[in-house]
Simulated assay, not measured.
Amino acid sequence: MDAKQTPRLIDIAAKVGVHPSVVSRTLRQDPTLSIRPDTRERIEQTARQMGYRGNAQARALRGASTGAVGMVMPSLRNPVWAEIVRGVLAEAVRWNLAVLVAEVPDDRGNDEEYVRLVEEGRIDGLLLGSSEPAERSSAWPPTQVPSVHVNRAVKDAACNITMDETRAVGLFVDHLTALGHRRITLIDGPATVDTTHRRSVALQRLGEERGLEVQIVNAPYNEQGGHDAMARLLRRAAKQRPTAVGVASLNQALGALAATRTRGVAVPSDLSMICLDDDPILGFLDIQLTAVRMPLFELGEAAMQALGERLSGGNPLSREIEDPIELVGRSSTASVPVR
C-alpha cells in the first residue's frame, strides 16, 4: 500500500487474512460477530498500526438512510443492461432514491467492492446483476443491507427478479422449426452465468421433446466471443453445420454476423440467425436481425420496486417477469436451405 494512501478495511483484512466484513464488524464492535479473541486482537492491533480511522460519516449514518442504492452490472457496453438501468432509474425516482452504478464483470471477484460500499455507509441497498459464480448461496452478498438479484436466480436468495428465459427460448425454437430447421445451435455466454444456464436447459429440453439436433456454444458476451464461436461453427463441413443459429447477446450477434461475411455465408439463404435480445438497432443493420424482445425495462422497474419495498421493511418475493416477451420478425430468418 502506498504510504500516502489512507488504509481501508480491505487492506487490514488482507494483512490479517480475514474477510473485509469481519474487519468491519470487529472495528464497530458488532455484538453478533463470533470470532476468536486472538483474531479480534490481531485485527484491532493491525488497524492501529496502519493508522486506520473509521469513516465518521458511516458511523453517523449507520442508523439512518443515505438515500442511495448501488447497482452492480456485468457490462456497461451491453445495451441490454442499459435498458434494465433505465427501468431501475425510472422506479428509483418514485422512491426518491439515487442510484450508484458500477461495472463488475461476472468473472471477477467483487466481494471487496460490495463490502467497501456498504460497510462504509455509502448505500442503503444493492441491486446485483453480477454474481459469479451463478450458483451462490443465500449468504451472498456478504453484507447486511437489503439486496435484490437482477436477471440472476441465486439459490435460496431472499429476492431474485428474473425474466422468463424458457419462454424466450420457446419462441426462438418455434419460429425456426416452423421454417423447417432441425439443426439449431445457440451461441450463449459462459456456462457458469445463471441466464446462460437457464436458456441452455430450456433448449436441451425442447430438443429432446421435438427430436431436434441442438447444441450450445459458450463464448464471452462480446463481439469477439460471438465472432469466434460463429467462425468455429462455419469451419465445419456444410452438412455438419447448423441451419440456424441463435445468439444470446447483441454484442455477440454483431461479431457473429462479421464471421458470416468473412466466410462468405449468406444470411438467411445459407444460415438463419436470431438474436435472443432485441434492440431497435437490429432493424438498421444491412441484415436486419430477427430477435426475441425481452421485458428489460420492466425487469429494472420490478427490481427497484422490490428493493424499495425491502428498504421500507417489506419482504417481497422473487418474481419472474413474463411480459412483454415476443418475437420480432425481420429479414435474417428463412426456410431451411437445401443442401
Rank of each mutant, 00 (worst) to 15 (best):
D2R: 08
Q5R: 14
D11I: 00
A13S: 03
P20N: 06
V23E: 14
P31R: 13
S34P: 10
I43M: 02
T46D: 00
A58H: 14
A58W: 10
L76R: 01
A82H: 08
V85Q: 05
R86M: 12
V93R: 02
L100D: 08
E103R: 03
V104Q: 09
D111F: 00
V115K: 12
E120T: 15
G121P: 12
S130F: 15
S131V: 12
E132Y: 06
P141M: 01
Q144E: 15
Q144W: 14
Q144D: 15
H149L: 08
N151K: 03
A153V: 05
A153N: 10
K155S: 13
M163N: 01
T166S: 10
L171C: 04
L171K: 02
T177I: 13
L179I: 02
R182V: 13
R182G: 09
I187V: 14
T192C: 05
H197M: 02
S200V: 03
S200W: 00
E208I: 05
R210I: 09
G211R: 06
V214H: 00
Q215R: 11
Q224F: 06
D228M: 07
M230H: 13
A244Y: 08
A258F: 12
A259S: 04
R261H: 11
V265K: 13
L271H: 12
S272A: 14
I274D: 15
D278G: 01
P295C: 14
L296D: 13
F297M: 13
G300R: 13
A302R: 15
A306T: 06
A306Y: 04
R310K: 15
L311A: 10
L311H: 06
N315R: 09
P316W: 13
S318G: 03
I321R: 11
I325E: 04
E326T: 11
A334V: 01
A334T: 05
A334P: 03
